[in-house]
Amino acid sequence: MATAIEIQGLTKRFKSPFGGTLNAVDNLDLNVQEGEIFGFLGPNGAGKTTTIKILLGLISPTSGKAMVLGKPAGDNNTKKRISYLPESPYFYEYMSARELLNFYADLFRIGREERKTRVDSLLERVGLAEAADKPLRHYSKGMLQRAGVAQALLNNPDLVFLDEPTSGLDPIAHADICNLILDLRAQGKTVFVSSHQLGDIEMIANRVAILVSGKLAMMGEVKELLTTKQVEIIADGVNDEVAGKIAEISDESELHAGRLTAYIQDAAVQKNVIEMLLKNNASLVSVNPRRRTLEKLFVDTVRGGR
């Protein structure tokens, strides 16, 4: 499979307003394959938007290489095949969604006939068919985001950049936009999506990278990062003494108000712990394979944990 995005040693240095400099992106290496949904995570100010802007040619890197669909970032021909939804997009406020999409379609040099079909079907697809002729000034944040997604799909792109597409949306808009991204995945498009909504990324992305202060802190397949060989045992009515003994033999455990949660990989230890719990009249709540959440992985990574 071909490489959609290739980033090598990418650095972007800004002059900080208080004097001195700031590496918003710091020696970043990263590859995204075609057909991947790539989740680009990181706390506020980590450098996600800066990286995306470099990939789009909106700003130029201080050093390093950024290739998009085999061409240097910002190549005008490549731009026909990619699209971008900025963070909290804002559009010309006196325009209606239909006018806006017509305008963007003209920038993509889509012919008149084709334009009408695409605009109509996209308005339908993002759920703006009814509001299509109202000025964007009267749109809610969710509706603006829908318009933003529609403009990003106008050129039927091979590669889509989405910067925090689900931040600050109501649950319906949120679900709709997640579904649109899943559609893209089904169509085999490449999607580079930055986000804070870790639950969404967990659901839609194949692979994630976590950026901290401009540096790559972790990268891998979502499945591999989140599955472990441990079993999670939860029991209620556990006293301190028993919990203490269990803590000694578990890989990880915690006790909150009589509820014990223990993580154990070794099968013999698992059996042992369950027997101890039953013998001490604790009530078992659940025994499950342990699955980490992206949320936990993220917090651990950003805090400099494992």
Partner: peptide
């Protein structure tokens, strides 16, 4: 930021 959606197009 309307410029971003314009300049990211051809």
């Amino acid at each position: 930021r309307t410029i971003y959606t314009i300049l990211s197009k051809p």
